[in-house]
Design a protein around this nucleic acid. Structure first.
Lengths: 339, 339
DNA sequence: AGGGCGAATGTTAACGCTCACATAACGGTC
DNA sequence: GACCGTTATGTGAGCGTTAACATTCGCCCT
């Protein structure tokens, strides 16, 4: 079968017996078209299987219809999920999203990424900013397309969107306090990450709020291995009756360490994580955790970016509330003695 | 500061004192330009910070410069990794990749995705085809842009690219046979998935090749929970001295079940997974598994697609060899009796 | 009946680039 | 010095669309 050229506005116009501009109006849903004419044009469009040429459209409108997403290839659950959510939200907003996955957060690579996006004439950029360094780079960049930061340090003056990490950590800690725990340890993420810092701060704040001051801190790095090490230390020192891990992967490690030492969860020690990874519900025992609505983060970020592109003000509140998910790994503090 | 319009070809031409066509030639690396002229033009480009307008370029060239990626939001490690790899490879090939993440593989949604990509005038589509159903939908589609299938059923006549799942499964099984195991159980993925089927077939083939016929099969669904259930059954029946799980998540479940029952890994039972998820090296014990080179898959898929767009033949072999990664979870069959 | 007005549609000119072709410049040959 | 071929550069058209303005038509009002 011969491959015909795609139909153009002009072809549709000829078939429908109108001018190309009328067709354009129908395609772009302008009003001031007689229903009868519109009907005729729409039939012609259907018959020719006409699709507007996006390149021509973008050219004449002086825009590219493209957004850039810069993220790092950390393999972490959060950033990857947000990337996905951003891609979906961008498409819903009528933009094409082009994701740039960096293998490091070094300034050079970051700059070249921004350069590459400039070459694509992106109208805006979303940076999934896990690292403080990345923030600095963005801040230092003058001119160019508007930039929205996601999930980094949300306290800055720039446009930023993200889950309220502090609130999530406080909710998790409050949940453990409500169960009667007073010795609540915390396993942190790497503290260069804004999220890790915020979760630690939330935990600390809530403890102070409750008048509890002596929570132990264990330094982790997001990995299950680091959670495992923290878990072993916790069993050795043997004071905490509850552990709040800064992410689910580390909580997995904690669970394994506790299990290995014969410490029962939640009878002897309660564990709460953060993220609600897909496996969380299938762990032994199912993990209590804090769920983040990445979909909402993606949508708001794109909203904020499109607003910036149009030169408008910040649209909706930029902090999104996380949700505590209680499962079997957290329970009332036991009266018995820890083994 | 006033925001100037972006520089055009004409602006550069005027500044360099040449025609716009000469500038175009310099930009597009055409030869037949005097070095001196080229130098002058390049300086002008740098001074004006000129970037070609991709919309105008695509319009006149009659192409969109865009590829579509269709994937499903399964949250599985493999598909997500491949999506990333595809995005990177597409960009390296000079294309903009637009990813469509489907929440189901139902025909309707799939069709609307293809429709949406047609609207973007994508030049080609990569489908990360996990489900047999998805394959059918693609096969039924006539006309439109070329399509490359990734990681589905690789035996079809269409352009397909992927890791040789059968070879990977055979390597894993061979590894266990080499360690002296003869009772090797297999935990499958959901058998609607082409990968799950291929891994089971590879396991079976290698057993037959070695003259071992009595491997037990346990049906799983990729989740850690299903692996856990299989692990419990294995300890109850108590025959297998080795388990090959069709993915790492299920292997995690197996490990937990064995551990819980006091079965030592690898002393009593060896475990091998598939995927090499980031946690694999941090599990207890570190998990032997099969690593897939997703980067290579992405690159070959894009190569194949660009070849198809140009109407050329299939470029490189489309099957990629996986790599066995031996860690502590697999060891020689023990002479002692299982507890 | 003529003027004016609004609704519906048509006409023309960009948008920034590449392609195909036209021209200029230059050196060698007879 | 007229002719040719080669190399380097310039010119004009057109890609498919939208924006701005122009036109046509029918209708109501005085």
């Amino acid at each position: 079968m011969e491959r015909r050229r795609a139909a153009r506005l002009k072809d549709v116009a000829e078939l429908a017996g109108v001018s190309h501009q009328t067709v354009s109006r129908v395609v772009n849903r302008a009003d001031g078209i007689r229903p009868e004419t519109r009907e005729r044009v729409e039939q012609a469009i259907a018959r020719l299987d006409y699709h507007p040429n996006p390149a021509a459209r973008n050219l004449v409108r002086g825009r590219s219809g493209t957004l850039g997403i810069i993220t790092t290839d950390t393999g972490q659950f959060g950033p990857a999920s947000i990337q996905r959510a951003l891609e979906m939200a961008a498409r819903e907003a009528g933009y094409l999203a082009s994701s740039l996955v960096l293998s490091s957060v070094r300034r050079v690579e970051f700059d070249s990424a921004v350069e590459q996006l400039a070459r694509l004439a992106v109208e805006g950029i979303v940076v999934i900013a896990v690292h403080d360094d990345a923030l600095d780079v963005v801040r230092s960049r003058a001119g160019g397309p508007p930039v929205v930061l996601v999930e980094g340090d949300l306290s800055g003056s720039r446009r930023t969107v993200g889950v309220d990490q502090v609130a999530g950590a406080r909710a998790a800690t409050r949940h453990l306090l409500d169960l009667g725990h007073t010795e609540i340890a915390h396993v942190t993420g790497p503290l260069e990450w804004a999220e890790a810092k915020a979760r630690r701060d939330g935990w600390r704040l809530e403890l102070e709020h409750a008048g509890v001051t002596n929570g132990e801190v264990f330094a982790g790095d997001w990995s299950a291995a680091s959670g495992y090490r923290a878990g072993r230390l916790i069993t050795v020192r043997g004071r905490a009756t509850a552990v709040f891990a800064a992410n689910d992967q580390m909580a997995v490690g904690v669970l394994q360490a506790l299990h290995q030492e014969g410490v029962r969860v939640p009878e002897d020690v309660s564990v709460v994580g953060f993220d609600d990874i897909p496996e969380a519900a299938f762990l032994i025992p199912p993990l209590s955790t804090v769920r983040q609505d990445f979909r909402a983060v993606g949508q708001r970020a794109i909203e904020s970016l499109t607003a910036a592109i149009r030169g408008g003000p910040e649209p909706r509140p930029r902090l999104i509330d996380p949700e505590l998910v209680v499962r079997a790994s957290s329970g009332p503090v036991s009266r018995g003695v820890r083994p």
